[in-house]
């Protein structure tokens, strides 16, 4: 099975390319003389064993029609195991000495779930009712992927879903300097009361990238569903359609929530400016504004690497249900046209 998202966009990954540098790289002669050469090296090494990805699919389909086709359902259960996923090998040790990254069939993912479509039709006198629903649920699991030999096994993506969100676990905001002194050291630059406090997952006494864990679910929703009904009576039509997604989460980021992160004036959300933010009592004159559970940390000017990084603080549930369409329609005919 092929993959149209070839990593790196290399057209002929099984071939290497050799190229020259654009300028001289080494001068063999004394000063004032010239015996310099351009450099030549592999600009892309070959990936000689790349091949098709292998996919094993199992589907179970169930089509049901009941009560003289008043109720129809199509259900498709699937279980796909894709192995030999074509990936760039980003974590070759530097002792190998390559100047470019080869690719290989190293990944494996299993996805399971079902697709369902349900339809219900009823006629009550002159009223026609049609109701439709659909639902897709899928759950996948990374079985193997290209990754570094992490010290902390919980940082390996195996066992998690594709596109699993990763970040720190936030424990609210620092109350005061005592709180800072009594907490593990956070290695993301300077921080002070009102900044985000994180959990020391590995218990090594410092908060750093080693404390990143899987948080929330995946960026892409695992559950998508829809529900629609239409009712028609004589010339009148009424229909609505709801659509929803569940089982996803995402990080809020950018200058609207990372207030003044780019060091300039700009649009910020009302909550940041309002009372939903940690404000030092020195400024507000009111100790209660030093709220460790506020929705936004203290205001800071310019980059604040301690706060502005992926963590549960900025993680939001991506589930939603929306009314996608609502139609009310009527049709009338002029006599002249029917004549």
């Amino acid at each position: 099975m092929g993959n149209d998202q070839l990593a790196g966009g290399t057209r002929f990954p099984y071939l290497y390319t050799i190229g020259q540098t654009s300028s001289n790289v080494y001068q063999w002669a004394d000063y004032g003389l010239d015996r310099a050469y351009l450099g030549m090296r592999f600009t892309q090494v070959a990936s000689p064993y790349v091949t098709w990805e292998v996919s094993e699919k199992q589907n179970l389909g169930l089509d049901i029609a009941l009560f003289r086709e008043k109720f129809i359902s199509y259900i498709d259960l699937f279980d796909e195991k894709r192995t030999g996923i074509y990936m760039r090998r980003e974590f070759l040790p530097e002792i190998v000495g390559l100047e470019s990254v080869p690719s290989a069939n190293v990944g494996a993912v299993r996805s399971r779930g079902f697709d369902g479509r349900f339809e219900f039709r009823q006629r009550l006198g002159e009223v026609n009712i049609t109701a439709r629903a659909n639902m897709t649920y899928s759950k996948n699991e990374v079985l193997k992927r290209d990754q570094t030999n992490n010290v902390y096994k919980y940082q390996n993506m195996e066992g998690y879903r594709v596109d699993q969100n990763v970040g720190l676990i936030a424990l609210g905001l620092f109350k005061d300097y005592d709180d800072i002194r009594n907490s593990p050291k956070q290695n993301f630059g300077t921080y002070q009361p009102g900044d985000i406090k994180y959990k020391d997952v590995n218990g090594d006494g410092v908060i750093d990238d080693g404390d990143n864990v899987a948080i929330g679910s995946t960026r892409r929703p695992n559950l998508i569903y829809g529900l629609g009904t239409s009712v028609s009576y004589k010339n009148f039509d009424f229909s609505f359609h709801f659509q929803g997604a569940g089982k996803s989460s995402f990080f809020t980021y950018g200058k609207t929530v990372y207030a003044f992160s780019e060091g300039e004036w700009g649009q910020v959300l009302k909550g940041i400016m309002g009372d939903n933010r940690w404000i030092s009592a020195d400024i507000s004159g009111d100790p209660s504004t030093e709220d460790p559970n506020a929705s936004y940390p203290r205001l800071s000017y310019g980059p604040n690497p301690n706060n502005f990084r992926n963590s549960t603080f900025w993680l939001r549930n991506g589930q939603y249900l929306r009314l996608k369409t609502l139609d009310i329609a009527t049709a009338y005919l002029r006599r002249s046209q029917t004549a």
Partner: peptide, 10 residues
């Protein structure tokens, strides 16, 4: 070959 060597010495 000279260019390959020059790149090594780079």
């Amino acid at each position: 070959s000279e260019q390959w060597l020059a790149h090594i010495f780079e």
